[in-house]
Design a protein around this nucleic acid. Structure first.
Lengths: 208, 208, 208, 208
DNA sequence: GATGAATGAGTTTTCATTCAT
DNA sequence: CATGAATGAAAACTCATTCAT
C-alpha cells in the first residue's frame, strides 16, 4: 500500500527566523488543507500561500506528508491541552460530575477548529496516520482509567482500561460523525445530554 | 475543496456483455484498491488488471472516482443485505434479544470483507457530494428507529431517531476503531458483550 | 554510487505508428546529446525536439538513461555492422593483410558518427554503461582470436585471447584519444600506418 | 555543449587557516566523489562532510566543478610525481630498461588510488575547457620523447613525439580498460610483460 | 463499441548559488 | 571572514483523460 516515508522534520529550526518560517509554512499548510483538501494541498501551493520559496519548505520538511503530519500534531497538541485542563478536576468528582466533565472536555476539544478537525479526520487516514490520530486519546486515557479504578467498588466495571477504551471510542465515534454529518449539533445541548446518558448508563451498567 | 464531478454510471450497460465488462472493472478496482490503496488505484492499473482497455473503462465510468464509488456501493449493498437480514427478526424481539441482534448484525457486517472495509474507511477520501454514500447506516436506521418507536413506552427514549443515530454512531465508532487498532477483537466474545451492555444501558437509560 | 535503474524499454512499440515514434525519440535524443551533452539532455528537451509529448517519451522509456542507452545501442549496432563486414575477409589473409583489415575496420567504425561516438564515450561512463561500451568489441573479438589461433605457429603468441584483448584495448584506446584530442588525425594516413606498425610488431613480437 | 565556467580558485588562500580549509574541502570532495559518484557529489554534501559551511566552500571555489577539478589536479600531481620519479632514470637506459621503467611507472601510477582514478575517468564528465587537464600525460611525455630522440639512430622512429603519443595512448588505453574490466590484472606479472612486449616491438618496429 | 497510443498539465523534489547576518 | 538560511529555476516523472483508428 506504499506510503511510509520519513515524516520527521528535516532540520530543527534553530534560529528565531527559521522558527517563524516553519510556523508560517505550517499555517499555510493548514489554510491550504482547509481550502483544497489533501489532494489539492500541493507543496507549491503551500509555499505560495506561505509567501515562501518552495526550497524553504523542503529545507524543513522532507516531503509533502510531513507537512500534513505536522499540522496534525499541532492540532493534537491543542486538543490535548484542552482535554487535560478539563480533566485535571476529575480526581474527586462524583460520577455525574465526572461524566459531565468528560463530555464537556471532549466537546470543547472538538470545538477548537472543527473544520480543520474534520479535514484531518477525513484526509489523514490516507497517509497512514490513523493510528496516530487514535493515539491522541492515549494521552489522557490514563486519567479516566484512574478515576474508574478509584470508583471500582461502586461501579460494575470489570476492566477499567477496557471500559475507558470503549467509552472513548464510542464518544469519539459519535463526535467524529457529528463533525462530518451534523456539524450544527456541536452546539446543541441535547448532544451533550445524550452523551452523558450514554456514559453514565454504560458505567452504572446493567449486566445483560 | 475541489472535487465535484459526475459519479453516476455514464450509461446503463444494456447488453449482457457490457454488464460483464462493468463487473470485471469493478472487481479489478477492488483488487487494486486492496493492493495499492486509493492513491495507487490508477485508472490505467485498473484497466490492466481487468484485462480491459482503458478506453473501455471510460466507456462506462466518467472518471476515476466513479470507479471507487461503485466499489463502495457494492460493498454497502452487501453490508445492507447482512444488516437487513439480521434485523428482519427485530420486530417482536425483547430488548435483550433486539440488542443482541443489532450487535450481532453490526459485527457480522464488519466481517464481510474487513480489509476492503478498512481500506474504504481509511483510504478513500470523502469523494465529492458523496457524503450520502458514507452514511451507510441510513438504510437500516429506520428499522431500528421503528423498533424503538414501538417500544417507546417501556424505554425512556425521548426521540427514537436521535437515539438510533447516537447508538449506531457509537457502535460504529467502536467497530471502526477495532478494525484499525484491534483487529483481533472482532472475534472476541467480550467485544460483543461490552457493546450489548453499552446499548442496553443507554436504552434502559438512567437519566443523569 | 546509486544509479542502476531499469533501462530496458517499457513497452514494445507494436504498431507502425509507435515504431516511428520511438525512432523519432531516439533520433531527437541523439541530436540533443550532441548539442547539449549528457547533462543538458533532459527528457523535456528531447520530447520538445522530437515534437512529441513528454508523456509519449515515458510511454516507451522508463527513464532518462534508457534513452541514452538506446542511442548507444543503436550506434553500436552500426559499428558492429561495419566491423563484421570488414572482418569477414579476414580468414585467409596474410599477417599484413589481416592487420590492414583490422585497422581499416576500426578506423572506419570510428568514422561513422565521430561526434556522437565522442559524446557517448565521454558521457556514457556516468550511467554505468562503460562495460557495455567495452563489450561492443566482444562481438568481433572471436573473429580476431580465431585468426590468431590459426596462425599460431608463425607467431610468438602465447594466448590468442589475451593478445586480442590487449590489441583491441590498445588500438581502441588510441582511437578514443584521437577522437577526443586529435579529431583531425582520423583522416591522416599516418595514424593508420602507426597502428599497423603497432599491431604487426606486437604480433611478430620480440620477446623482451 | 553548455558548461564553460571559471574553474580556477577564487582566491589564493594566503593564511594558514585558509589553506587548511581548502585542504579539508578537497579531501571531502574526494570522499564524496568516491562514495556517491559525480552526480551525487553535491556542494552541500561536500560542505557537510568537510564539516564546513557551504558559504566557506564558495569562498574558495567559484562553483561545483572547480571542486572536482581541484581533486583531479591533486590526483594528477601525485601521478606526475610517481611518473617523473620513475622516469628520472630514463636518460641513459637501454631500450629494454627504458621500457621496463616506463611500464613500471605507468602501472605504479595506476596503483596510487585506483578507485579514485576510476571514478575520475568514468564519472567525471569532460568539464568545460578542461581537455588540457585530461591530458594528464602531457607533463611527462617530453621525458619519453627526449629519450626517443636521443636514441633516434638506433630506432626506426620517424617522429618521436608522435611515437610517444601513440605509445602512451595505447598503454593508457589498456590500463584504463584493465581498471574497469579486469581490476585484478593490475597486480599480474603477465600484464606488465605484455605491455613491455607491445612497446619494445613497436619501437624496434618492423615497418609494414 | 472497443482499443490503446498519445497527451500534457501538474507534482514532487533537488541542488547550485547568493547574501544578510 | 564565516555562516547557513533562503532561494527558485529546472528536472524527472505520473496519470486522468481524449480521440483517431
Amino acid at each position: 500500500m506504499a506510503r511510509q516515508r520519513p515524516v520527521s522534520p528535516r532540520k530543527e529550526p534553530s534560529q528565531r527566523r527559521s522558527r517563524e518560517l516553519v510556523d508560517l509554512i505550517v499555517k499555510a499548510t493548514t489554510r491550504v488543507l482547509l481550502k483544497h483538501g489533501y489532494e489539492g494541498c500541493t507543496t507549491n501551493r503551500v509555499a505560495e500561500v506561505a509567501g515562501v520559496s518552495i526550497g524553504s519548505v523542503y529545507q524543513y520538511f522532507p516531503n509533502k506528508d510531513a507537512l500534513v503530519v505536522r499540522v496534525m500534531e499541532r492540532h493534537q497538541e491543542k486538543l490535548l491541552g484542552v482535554m487535560t485542563e478539563h480533566l485535571a478536576s476529575l480526581k474527586d468528582a462524583s460520577l455525574e460530575e465526572a461524566v459531565k466533565t468528560l463530555v464537556h472536555a471532549m466537546l470543547d476539544a472538538h470545538r477548537i477548529e472543527p473544520k480543520l478537525h474534520r479535514v484531518l479526520r477525513e484526509q489523514v487516514p490516507r497517509i497512514g496516520a490513523l493510528k496516530a490520530l487514535h493515539e491522541q486519546h492515549s494521552a489522557y486515557e490514563p486519567l479516566v482509567t484512574a478515576w474508574l479504578d478509584a470508583h471500582r467498588e461502586a461501579l460494575p466495571v470489570a476492566d477499567p482500561a477496557v471500559a475507558t477504551w470503549v467509552l472513548i471510542a464510542a464518544v469519539d465515534g459519535v463526535l467524529g460523525r457529528v463533525l462530518v454529518d451534523r456539524p450544527g449539533w456541536l452546539e446543541q445541548q441535547q448532544l451533550a445530554r445524550e452523551l452523558e446518558r450514554l456514559i453514565v448508563a454504560y458505567l452504572r451498567g446493567a449486566r445483560t
